[in-house]
């Protein structure tokens, strides 16, 4: 049943990916889950377009100031998965950034700032360490839930 609903739900979610629902499908690929969760949670692939994931997966030796490189086989497999599940996969439109931009951060997207600017206190941010540390504030983040909590 869920299977049939998914494309419909996704279609209605276009603008901020979560407008109708607090659920954002988490990573569903074991190798990506394993390799991309050591330094931060494995981010949901639909939050960035395919071009962003490709850029990230081809610059892992200087990944936001760190070396996160992988063997070529694992790197290519993870890139293929992220691209296949990206925010603009299957012909969907990615509206969270202009088509001529390749955002590397979810935390730089306009919707992200809109959602967080007023809601996040300095104390919350201090405790989390970084806005990239989603699961510090959203306890259900790894399972795809970003509801109020």
């Amino acid at each position: 049943m869920r299977r049939f609903l998914t494309p419909l739900v996704l279609a209605t979610l276009a603008m901020p990916a979560f407008a109708e629902d607090d659920y954002i499908r988490p990573v569903q690929h074991p190798l990506t889950q394993e390799e991309c969760s050591a330094c931060h949670m494995a981010y949901p692939p639909s939050l960035l377009p395919a071009r962003s994931w490709s850029e990230i997966m081809n610059t892992l030796d200087d990944h936001f100031g760190e070396d996160a490189s992988l063997g070529e086989e694992a790197r290519a497999e993870i890139e293929a998965y992220l691209v296949s599940a990206a925010g603009d996969a299957n012909g969907r439109r990615f509206r969270a950034a202009p088509a001529d931009e390749t955002p590397l951060r979810i935390t730089d997207l306009p919707w992200f700032n809109r959602e967080h600017k007023r809601e996040v206190s300095t104390r919350m941010l201090e405790r989390a360490g970084s806005m990239s540390n989603c699961s510090a504030c959203h306890r259900g983040a790894e399972r795809g839930y970003f509801e109020d909590d």
């Binding site: 330094c39 360490g129 540390n133 510090a136």
Partner: peptide, 15 residues
């Protein structure tokens, strides 16, 4: 990994 590797450390993301 902090000055004491017997203790928990923290990635730059806070993890």
């Amino acid at each position: 990994h902090t000055m004491d590797p017997r203790a928990k450390g923290q990635a730059r993301t806070g993890k």
